[in-house]
């Protein structure tokens, strides 16, 4: 009797600790949809997967950095992050006074974000997965044709410093996922698959000399300006870049 009691207590303790380390995830039921930019502008299939309910927070990233000293600001090599990586932290492992623990982590590179997710046994979402979840509003899985939906996103683009807000401060969408729009932009694993702007280097739009098969990638819905902005940002990023308003969240395959 005593042993079983002890066991239950331990199990309970274990699970609470476990649940605390692992941020909350929800299952996304896969399906097909037509993204703004897809393969031949046709439907894209998304498999079932789990996604973090919230973006990764400052506090969570502090914990990660403490456990993985290679990702300290002073240790991270330039191949993996530019010089503004975690630049507004007070020190290697401390936030600044004005940074809230529950605000989304930003100023992290793609390499750092990817490594964080892998450390949790997760991965970064693909562009297709991220867009699939993000096209939902509060009640519909695909609200992209609604005026309100686009208006909300566009009004966020105009608001300054939303990255200072806490996670969960925007709406809960159809999938019970928060903050896809309204707080920060988010890294995706294959952000560098976006070819629309060339590389915003010296080449021009759909330069057939720079891109093989570039004519095959075109907007299916140019009206969807909000999404267009996201793709444009992705197209201009490099993996070592860090931005004040660019964070991330992780996903996991359904077992």
């Amino acid at each position: 009797m005593k042993t079983s009691m002890r066991l239950t207590v331990w199990m309970l303790l274990f699970f609470t600790v476990y649940a605390n380390c692992q941020s909350k995830m929800v299952l996304i039921k896969g399906g097909e949809y037509i993204p703004l930019y897809g393969r031949d502008s046709t439907k894209v299939k998304v498999k079932n997967f789990y996604i973090d309910v919230y973006p990764v927070t400052n506090q969570e990233f502090v914990t990660f950095v403490k456990k993985n000293p290679n990702w300290k600001r002073s240790k991270t090599i330039r191949l993996f992050a530019d010089s503004s990586y975690l630049s507004n932290w007070k020190s290697d492992t401390e936030l600044n006074e004005h940074q809230k623990e529950k605000s989304p982590i930003t100023n992290v590179s793609w390499f750092a974000a990817k490594n964080y997710c892998e450390n949790q046994g997760k991965r970064l979402p693909t562009v297709d997965e991220w867009e699939y979840v993000a096209m939902a509003n509060k009640t519909m899985p695909d609200a992209r044709t609604l005026k309100n939906y686009n208006k909300f996103i566009l009004s966020w683009y105009e608001k300054p410093k939303t990255y200072n807000q806490e996670i969960g401060s925007t709406f809960e969408n159809y999938w019970k996922v928060y903050d896809l729009h309204g707080l920060v932009w988010e890294w995706t694993s294959d952000f560098n698959s976006v070819l629309i702007t060339g590389e915003s280097r010296k080449d021009v739009d759909t330069d057939s000399d720079l891109f093989c098969g570039s004519a095959a990638v075109n907007a299916t819905d140019l009206m969807n300006y909000a999404a267009f902005m996201r793709y444009a940002i992705r197209g201009s990023l490099k993996a070592k870049y860090t931005m004040k308003n660019l964070g991330f969240r992780c996903v996991k395959d359904e077992k």
């Binding site: 390499f111 560098n192 976006v194 720079l210 891109f211 093989c212 098969g213 990638v217 490099k238």
Partner: peptide, 25 residues
């Protein structure tokens, strides 16, 4: 490959099996 492409700032996307869009660098 995705990571390596990122180090080179090469962009690519699979358009269909056996066909990719990619930067020529």
């Amino acid at each position: 490959v995705r990571e390596f492409a990122n180090v080179l700032s090469v962009k690519y996307k699979q358009i269909s099996p056996l066909d990719f869009s990619h930067s020529n660098i």
